[in-house]
Design a protein around this nucleic acid. Structure first.
Lengths: 218, 218, 218, 218
DNA sequence: TCGTAACCGAGACGGTACGTCTGGTCTTTTT
DNA sequence: AAAAAGACCAGACGTACCGTCTCGGTTACGA
């Protein structure tokens, strides 16, 4: 199907390697201090948890980390990229990819893990704040895709790939659509707050997605 | 099922009446001028379209509307509530609810109309900006639900209600879930930009939702 | 002496009559209410005493007098003229002109009365505030001269005139200079606060002025 | 005389040293820039001369000096203290203290210099504006005494001291009174505008003061 | 080993926008 | 038509942060 080739194009990682966060020290002059960097990320995480991205200021981060503002701007161009770094590494480390041997159970695992993380108030709040920030800053949007969306979808697509290999999904299954049907409703409820994010929701969504898969529509 | 009763609870309008935007003039003193209000909303709409919510300022709105800043703050407490008013009335007026006699066609109509509106750059940009703002201001979040989410879902639920009456959906169908499966993926792509919002996407989503409905999982 | 004729010219009342504060009711429409006027002046006097002219606002006067702002602006063009009215009538009524039959005792009486009034905190504060306001508003300066400086100096010149008639002062005595030597140092200390305003000061000033008079230099 | 000891107490400098305008740079962080300070004072002087203290705004000063408002507020808490600094240094530098060897001539020199300065419109206008501001701001009143009144009186008292040493004034002459008799009438005419400030006035005042001195009443 | 380039914390820099306040005017309904 | 009430436009207020720059000082390479 030609449509798949052009219109189903998922966002693509530019390479298989993880994106390096900064170029190495050029050799001349004093190198950037890792202590300073750690202190900044630590202070950022605390403030993100305590007051949210929107009401966190760079001045506050600098003060709490006992660091000059320039030491922050030397590393991160905007508040958003700083928060992204403080959030993403941690988040990706904690989201394990299930491999139960069953698509249904893998999907349940993925969505349950997401819901569990997001209901933990600091993660949910930070995620909402970052998504908000991403809408106002196109450069952050790129970073967001490269450092959060793509790595996560890459993992999720691997789950689906295993399912294809098991024959649960057809070889040309619309995997991008499947992931959006799985996570879209979840982000929708997170951001609009119109209905609860609970276990019943997880099960209902997975059941619907599986029904669509089994009917051959995905 | 007890679960439906408590956990499926959709966000509820407090009454069937539209939310009145302001209390009536108490009779004493000069009443708020409708001309002033119109000028403010007009200027806001223009600036929203030209530069987006994030980079619009109250000072700019005041200047463009030839209005004192106090006349804005007298009516709207924040930039977000002002933008909400400028956007919502117009948006709701243009989103027609289809009634084709077929659930599939109604869903296609709903999602196509949303995609068409959102791809029109000013609506998409403003919607993204407002959703971002809603994440940073809890009071705005309430207003957003009352004035945007609830009225829209109420209309959409009416479509599903007609479908129930036609027997396409079972009487206790999980309508909230259905709407989230329909619109969740769409908002997801709008906000993360990882995949395109096009006609193929609309058709694929509706096909999947209909498959889930026909399998009896919704 | 020609110099007297031109250079000694004291500020002159345009007529011997007191300046009428407002033109009479023209006969058409509802006349201005005396109750309203009294309430405004009363509120003004209270606020002048409580917080001083500088931090009193017209809005506050209106609120305290249960009066619309327009009712104030209908009568007085500025805050200064309002304060002037609230202050002057009262002040002039309480400053009695002595007539002891002796220039020295009359001068002592005049200066003592002034010092006593001014040391009463509300009068001193209001007087300082009005003099300050007069420097910033040229129109108020005219009113200040017409309604405060001239009436007061007229009374004081009458004292000196009686002294001339008694032969204590020569017929062409430089009366303007004499009054400035008497009151100038007092206003100086009031406004700069560098030295105290007490009975010793009064006696010393009067002694010096009398010495100058007796030496024929005034 | 006990009276001299307590009641004649002139306002006293806390030390013989000139009051330092600001504490030195603590060594940490970027020091306050002298260029910025000069630009602000220059702009302030210009605006004071052009439009007077009352109608000068901090925003205008900032704009004219090409400086952020915060750079002004970092140095001066109020408009009054800023104007004080812009005015006083210059004024003190231009008021020379006469030393003719004769009290009468020294007093003539002092008062003539003051009148000449004050008749120059910008100095007179600024002085009136500052005296007005001093009445409305008690903190400014302190600064006014410390940075204007005391330094000036200190110079003037030195003139009188030399006169005492020459035997023209008795050793315990009431020097504070003498200065108030000399300058009080001058400020009085400046602020109330009821009579002119000219050479005849200067001569008449000095003649009267000298008569009082010679009569032994000062 | 010494110079120098780039770092460090601190904090001032020129700006922008905020939300509040006041001034003087205008528009309601009520008296 | 004046009254009280209160909204109107205008614009300065003082504050908070922005992202950059300057200060005195430190660190680690490479000549």
């Amino acid at each position: 199907m030609a449509r798949q080739d052009v219109a189903r194009q998922d966002v693509a990682p530019t390479s298989g390697l993880p994106v390096p966060r900064r170029e190495p020290h050029p050799g001349r002059g004093r190198p950037l201090s890792d202590d300073t960097e750690r202190a900044i990320l630590q202070a950022t995480s605390e403030l993100l948890a305590e007051r949210g991205l929107a009401s966190m200021t760079i001045e506050e981060v600098a003060a709490r980390a006992h660091v000059g503002k320039a030491s922050i701007y030397r590393r991160w161009p905007t508040k958003g990229t700083l928060a992204l770094d403080a959030f993403v590494t941690d988040y990706l480390a904690h989201q394990q990819v299930p491999d139960t041997g069953s698509l249904r159970d893998d999907l349940l695992g993925l969505l349950r893990a997401w819901v569990r993380a997001v209901r933990q108030s600091t993660v949910g709040r930070t995620l909402k704040g970052l998504i908000a920030e991403v809408q106002r800053d196109p450069e952050l949007a790129d970073a967001w895709r490269d450092r959060f969306v793509v790595p996560l979808r890459t993992r999720h697509l691997a789950v689906l790939q295993r399912s294809i290999e098991r024959g649960e999904l057809v070889p040309h299954a619309n995997t991008g659509l499947l992931l959006d049907l799985l996570f879209g409703p979840a982000y929708h409820r997170l951001l609009h707050g119109h209905m609860p994010l609970n276990d019943a929701f997880v099960e209902d969504v997975v059941a619907a997605v599986m029904a669509a898969v089994e009917a051959g529509t995905i």
